[in-house]
Amino acid sequence: MKLLVCISRTPETTAKISFTEDGKQFNSDGVQYIMNPYDEWYALVRAVEFKEQNGGEVTVIHVGESSSDIIIRKALSIGADKAVRVNANPSSSLFVAKQIANYASENPQDIIFFGKETIDYNGSEIGPMVTEMLDIPYISFASKLDKDGDAFLCERDIEGGVQALKVNAPFGISAAKGMAEQRIPNMKAIMMSKRKPLEVVEPVEVEAKVSIDQYELPAGKSGVKLIDPENMDELVQLLKDVEKVL
Protein backbone atom coordinates (compact mmCIF):
# COMPACT_ATOMS: atom_id res chain seq x y z
CA MET A 1 0.00 0.00 0.00
CA LYS A 2 1.32 3.42 -0.92
CA LEU A 3 0.67 6.19 1.54
CA LEU A 4 1.50 9.81 0.83
CA VAL A 5 1.51 12.34 3.68
CA CYS A 6 1.46 16.05 2.86
CA ILE A 7 3.33 18.02 5.46
CA SER A 8 3.47 21.76 5.89
CA ARG A 9 5.51 24.15 7.95
CA THR A 10 3.95 26.71 10.29
CA PRO A 11 5.21 29.20 12.85
CA GLU A 12 5.47 27.60 16.27
CA THR A 13 2.16 27.96 18.13
CA THR A 14 3.26 30.68 20.55
CA ALA A 15 5.12 32.72 17.90
CA LYS A 16 4.44 36.42 17.95
CA ILE A 17 2.74 37.32 14.69
CA SER A 18 3.89 40.54 13.06
CA PHE A 19 4.28 42.01 9.59
CA THR A 20 6.65 44.30 7.76
CA GLU A 21 5.83 47.97 8.24
CA ASP A 22 4.07 48.31 4.90
CA GLY A 23 1.88 45.32 5.84
CA LYS A 24 2.95 43.44 2.73
CA GLN A 25 4.83 40.57 4.27
CA PHE A 26 4.92 38.28 7.28
CA ASN A 27 7.82 39.16 9.52
CA SER A 28 9.68 35.91 10.09
CA ASP A 29 12.47 37.44 12.21
CA GLY A 30 13.06 35.22 15.20
CA VAL A 31 10.11 32.98 14.35
CA GLN A 32 10.62 29.28 14.98
CA TYR A 33 8.95 26.91 12.55
CA ILE A 34 7.45 23.52 13.26
CA MET A 35 5.65 20.82 11.33
CA ASN A 36 1.96 21.70 11.27
CA PRO A 37 0.55 19.85 14.32
CA TYR A 38 -2.30 18.16 12.43
CA ASP A 39 0.12 16.84 9.85
CA GLU A 40 2.60 15.59 12.42
CA TRP A 41 0.49 14.33 15.29
CA TYR A 42 -2.37 12.81 13.39
CA ALA A 43 -1.83 12.36 9.64
CA LEU A 44 1.77 11.20 9.70
CA VAL A 45 1.50 9.05 12.80
CA ARG A 46 -1.60 7.28 11.48
CA ALA A 47 0.06 6.65 8.13
CA VAL A 48 3.10 5.17 9.86
CA GLU A 49 0.89 2.99 12.08
CA PHE A 50 -0.95 1.84 8.99
CA LYS A 51 2.26 0.76 7.36
CA GLU A 52 3.36 -1.01 10.52
CA GLN A 53 0.06 -2.92 10.61
CA ASN A 54 -0.54 -3.59 6.94
CA GLY A 55 2.79 -3.14 5.19
CA GLY A 56 3.50 -0.63 2.45
CA GLU A 57 5.46 2.55 2.11
CA VAL A 58 5.03 6.03 3.58
CA THR A 59 6.26 8.97 1.53
CA VAL A 60 6.10 12.51 2.87
CA ILE A 61 5.82 15.38 0.45
CA HIS A 62 6.48 19.00 1.22
CA VAL A 63 6.39 22.07 -0.96
CA GLY A 64 8.97 24.45 0.42
CA GLU A 65 12.54 25.64 0.40
CA SER A 66 15.60 23.98 1.90
CA SER A 67 14.96 25.68 5.25
CA SER A 68 12.19 23.08 5.64
CA ASP A 69 14.57 20.12 5.51
CA ILE A 70 14.65 20.04 9.29
CA ILE A 71 10.93 19.31 9.53
CA ILE A 72 11.20 16.77 6.71
CA ARG A 73 13.92 14.96 8.68
CA LYS A 74 11.62 14.99 11.67
CA ALA A 75 8.90 13.33 9.59
CA LEU A 76 11.40 10.67 8.53
CA SER A 77 12.39 10.12 12.15
CA ILE A 78 8.72 9.62 13.07
CA GLY A 79 8.67 6.75 10.60
CA ALA A 80 8.16 7.85 7.01
CA ASP A 81 10.29 5.84 4.56
CA LYS A 82 11.22 8.59 2.16
CA ALA A 83 10.58 12.22 1.41
CA VAL A 84 10.05 14.46 -1.56
CA ARG A 85 10.53 18.19 -1.39
CA VAL A 86 9.20 20.32 -4.19
CA ASN A 87 11.72 23.11 -4.21
CA ALA A 88 9.64 26.29 -4.21
CA ASN A 89 8.10 28.91 -2.01
CA PRO A 90 4.56 27.62 -1.27
CA SER A 91 3.04 30.84 -2.62
CA SER A 92 -0.62 29.80 -2.71
CA SER A 93 -2.87 26.83 -2.02
CA LEU A 94 -3.39 26.33 -5.72
CA PHE A 95 0.35 26.24 -6.30
CA VAL A 96 0.92 23.70 -3.52
CA ALA A 97 -2.04 21.55 -4.56
CA LYS A 98 -0.81 21.41 -8.14
CA GLN A 99 2.62 20.18 -7.04
CA ILE A 100 1.17 17.44 -4.87
CA ALA A 101 -1.34 16.33 -7.50
CA ASN A 102 1.42 16.28 -10.08
CA TYR A 103 3.59 14.03 -7.92
CA ALA A 104 0.67 11.75 -7.05
CA SER A 105 -0.39 11.30 -10.64
CA GLU A 106 3.13 10.30 -11.62
CA ASN A 107 3.50 8.13 -8.50
CA PRO A 108 0.03 6.68 -7.84
CA GLN A 109 -0.97 6.43 -4.19
CA ASP A 110 -3.61 4.48 -2.29
CA ILE A 111 -4.22 7.06 0.41
CA ILE A 112 -3.14 10.71 0.50
CA PHE A 113 -3.09 12.17 3.99
CA PHE A 114 -3.50 15.86 4.80
CA GLY A 115 -3.81 17.72 8.07
CA LYS A 116 -7.19 19.20 8.96
CA GLU A 117 -5.78 22.65 8.24
CA THR A 118 -2.56 24.60 8.54
CA ILE A 119 -2.58 26.61 11.75
CA ASP A 120 -1.24 29.75 10.03
CA TYR A 121 -3.45 30.19 6.98
CA ASN A 122 -6.33 28.09 8.35
CA GLY A 123 -7.48 27.24 4.87
CA SER A 124 -8.44 23.54 4.63
CA GLU A 125 -8.00 24.19 0.94
CA ILE A 126 -5.27 21.89 -0.26
CA GLY A 127 -6.87 18.49 0.41
CA PRO A 128 -10.04 19.29 -1.56
CA MET A 129 -7.99 20.82 -4.38
CA VAL A 130 -5.64 17.85 -4.74
CA THR A 131 -8.43 15.28 -4.62
CA GLU A 132 -10.44 17.20 -7.21
CA MET A 133 -7.42 17.35 -9.51
CA LEU A 134 -7.04 13.58 -9.14
CA ASP A 135 -10.81 12.98 -9.19
CA ILE A 136 -10.80 10.81 -6.07
CA PRO A 137 -12.97 10.91 -2.91
CA TYR A 138 -11.98 13.17 -0.03
CA ILE A 139 -12.84 12.45 3.58
CA SER A 140 -12.51 15.64 5.61
CA PHE A 141 -11.63 16.02 9.29
CA ALA A 142 -11.30 12.34 10.02
CA SER A 143 -10.81 11.21 13.59
CA LYS A 144 -10.48 7.53 12.67
CA LEU A 145 -9.14 5.43 9.82
CA ASP A 146 -9.06 1.62 9.81
CA LYS A 147 -8.79 -1.10 7.23
CA ASP A 148 -11.97 -3.07 6.74
CA GLY A 149 -11.34 -5.98 4.37
CA ASP A 150 -10.51 -4.43 1.03
CA ALA A 151 -12.16 -1.18 1.98
CA PHE A 152 -11.47 1.46 4.62
CA LEU A 153 -13.61 2.61 7.48
CA CYS A 154 -13.32 6.26 8.53
CA GLU A 155 -15.02 8.56 10.94
CA ARG A 156 -15.33 12.18 9.99
CA ASP A 157 -16.23 15.09 12.25
CA ILE A 158 -19.40 16.90 11.27
CA GLU A 159 -21.04 19.79 13.13
CA GLY A 160 -22.22 18.31 16.41
CA GLY A 161 -21.18 14.73 15.79
CA VAL A 162 -19.29 12.13 13.80
CA GLN A 163 -20.15 10.09 10.76
CA ALA A 164 -18.72 6.65 9.98
CA LEU A 165 -18.09 5.98 6.28
CA LYS A 166 -16.73 3.26 4.03
CA VAL A 167 -14.51 4.08 1.09
CA ASN A 168 -12.19 2.26 -1.31
CA ALA A 169 -8.69 3.35 -2.27
CA PRO A 170 -7.56 5.60 -3.77
CA PHE A 171 -8.81 8.49 -1.68
CA GLY A 172 -7.63 11.55 0.22
CA ILE A 173 -8.24 12.11 3.92
CA SER A 174 -7.62 15.02 6.27
CA ALA A 175 -6.64 14.15 9.80
CA ALA A 176 -8.20 15.74 12.88
CA LYS A 177 -7.65 15.10 16.55
CA GLY A 178 -8.36 11.55 17.59
CA MET A 179 -6.87 9.83 14.57
CA ALA A 180 -3.59 9.02 16.33
CA GLU A 181 -1.43 9.97 19.29
CA GLN A 182 1.59 12.21 18.97
CA ARG A 183 4.88 10.25 18.74
CA ILE A 184 8.22 11.46 20.01
CA PRO A 185 11.02 9.91 17.92
CA ASN A 186 13.85 8.28 19.86
CA MET A 187 17.58 8.78 19.26
CA LYS A 188 17.92 5.72 17.06
CA ALA A 189 15.06 6.84 14.84
CA ILE A 190 16.60 10.29 14.56
CA MET A 191 19.94 8.80 13.53
CA MET A 192 18.28 6.47 11.02
CA SER A 193 16.30 9.29 9.47
CA LYS A 194 19.55 10.83 8.25
CA ARG A 195 20.06 7.88 5.92
CA LYS A 196 16.57 7.92 4.46
CA PRO A 197 16.14 9.37 0.96
CA LEU A 198 15.07 12.99 0.54
CA GLU A 199 14.47 13.74 -3.10
CA VAL A 200 14.33 17.36 -4.23
CA VAL A 201 12.27 18.07 -7.35
CA GLU A 202 11.53 21.27 -9.22
CA PRO A 203 7.99 22.68 -9.31
CA VAL A 204 5.54 22.79 -12.18
CA GLU A 205 4.34 26.25 -13.12
CA VAL A 206 1.04 27.58 -11.84
CA GLU A 207 -0.66 30.89 -12.48
CA ALA A 208 -1.97 32.59 -9.32
CA LYS A 209 -5.65 33.52 -9.06
CA VAL A 210 -5.62 35.35 -5.74
CA SER A 211 -3.04 37.49 -4.02
CA ILE A 212 -2.66 38.99 -0.57
CA ASP A 213 -2.65 42.80 -0.69
CA GLN A 214 -2.31 43.63 2.94
CA TYR A 215 -1.85 42.14 6.39
CA GLU A 216 -3.05 43.80 9.57
CA LEU A 217 -3.20 42.97 13.24
CA PRO A 218 -6.71 42.87 14.69
CA ALA A 219 -7.75 45.69 17.00
CA GLY A 220 -7.09 44.55 20.55
CA LYS A 221 -9.64 44.54 23.36
CA SER A 222 -9.98 47.92 25.01
CA GLY A 223 -9.38 46.46 28.45
CA VAL A 224 -11.17 44.23 30.87
CA LYS A 225 -13.91 45.49 33.16
CA LEU A 226 -13.65 43.71 36.49
CA ILE A 227 -16.88 42.70 38.22
CA ASP A 228 -17.21 42.06 41.96
CA PRO A 229 -17.51 38.27 42.38
CA GLU A 230 -20.31 38.89 44.90
CA ASN A 231 -22.30 40.85 42.35
CA MET A 232 -23.23 38.55 39.49
CA ASP A 233 -26.45 40.53 38.97
CA GLU A 234 -24.32 43.35 37.65
CA LEU A 235 -22.57 41.07 35.16
CA VAL A 236 -25.87 39.65 33.95
CA GLN A 237 -27.32 43.14 33.56
CA LEU A 238 -24.30 44.25 31.50
CA LEU A 239 -24.46 41.18 29.28
CA LYS A 240 -28.18 41.65 28.81
CA ASP A 241 -28.64 45.39 28.48
CA VAL A 242 -25.30 46.73 27.29
CA GLU A 243 -23.87 43.87 25.22
CA LYS A 244 -27.26 42.40 24.31
CA VAL A 245 -25.86 38.88 24.17
CA LEU A 246 -28.06 37.20 26.78
Binding site: S93, A97, N122, E125, P128, M129, E132, R156, I158, K209
Partner: peptide, 23 residues
Protein backbone atom coordinates in the same frame (compact mmCIF):
# COMPACT_ATOMS: atom_id res chain seq x y z
CA UNK B 1 -17.07 27.55 6.19
CA UNK B 2 -18.36 24.32 7.75
CA UNK B 3 -17.29 20.70 7.44
CA UNK B 4 -19.21 20.40 4.15
CA UNK B 5 -18.37 23.84 2.79
CA UNK B 6 -14.67 23.47 3.55
CA UNK B 7 -14.46 20.14 1.73
CA UNK B 8 -16.33 21.50 -1.24
CA UNK B 9 -14.70 24.92 -1.60
CA UNK B 10 -11.31 23.74 -2.86
CA UNK B 11 -12.90 21.17 -5.15
CA UNK B 12 -15.25 23.69 -6.75
CA UNK B 13 -12.43 26.17 -7.21
CA UNK B 14 -10.51 23.60 -9.24
CA UNK B 15 -13.56 22.43 -11.18
CA UNK B 16 -14.55 25.99 -12.10
CA UNK B 17 -11.00 27.24 -12.56
CA UNK B 18 -11.88 29.83 -9.93
CA UNK B 19 -10.00 31.83 -7.34
CA UNK B 20 -10.64 30.75 -3.77
CA UNK B 21 -10.65 32.49 -0.42
CA UNK B 22 -11.92 30.49 2.54
CA UNK B 23 -13.20 31.71 5.92
Amino acid sequence: HSSQGKSLAGRLAIRLDAGLVTA
